[in-house]
Computed example of a mutant assay.
Amino acid sequence: MSQVSGRLSGRFVPVLLIVIAMISVQSGASLAKKLFPLVGASGATSLRLLVGAIALTLFFKPWRSRLTPGNLAPLLIYGIVLGGMNFLFYQSILTLPLGVAVAFEFTGPLAVAIFSSRRAIDFLWILLAIGGLMLLLPIGHTISNIDIGGALYALAAGGCWALYIIFGKKSGMKNGPTSVALGVSIATVCFAPIGFWQNSSTMFSLDVLPLALGVGVLSTALPFSLEMMALTRIPSRTFGTLMSLEPAVGALSGMVILGEHLTWLQWSALAAIVLASAGATLTIKSGK
Rank of each mutant, 00 (worst) to 15 (best):
I148H: 03
P14S: 05
G216D: 01
G259P: 07
M22H: 12
L58E: 01
L226R: 05
A278Y: 12
L222C: 05
G150F: 02
P193Q: 10
K170M: 14
E260L: 04
G168P: 07
D147T: 03
A41Y: 03
A44S: 15
A192P: 04
L127M: 14
L56K: 06
S253W: 00
C160E: 10
S92I: 00
L262D: 00
M229N: 14
T238V: 15
I77G: 06
W197T: 15
P14R: 10
I130C: 14
C160N: 08
L17M: 15
I54G: 07
M22G: 15
R11C: 10
P37N: 06
L258M: 08
L72P: 02
V189Y: 06
N175A: 12
L50M: 15
L50I: 15
G216K: 02
A269S: 13
W161S: 03
Q266N: 08
L209P: 00
P138W: 02
Q266P: 02
A221Y: 05
Q198V: 10
L262C: 04
L50W: 09
P193F: 08
Y90H: 11
T281C: 10
L218G: 05
S144M: 10
Q26V: 01
W125A: 14
M134T: 14
V208P: 08
A53P: 05
F106D: 03
S27G: 13
F87H: 14
E246P: 01
F89A: 08
A151K: 05
G250T: 04
S253P: 02
M1N: 12
L110R: 07
L136H: 09
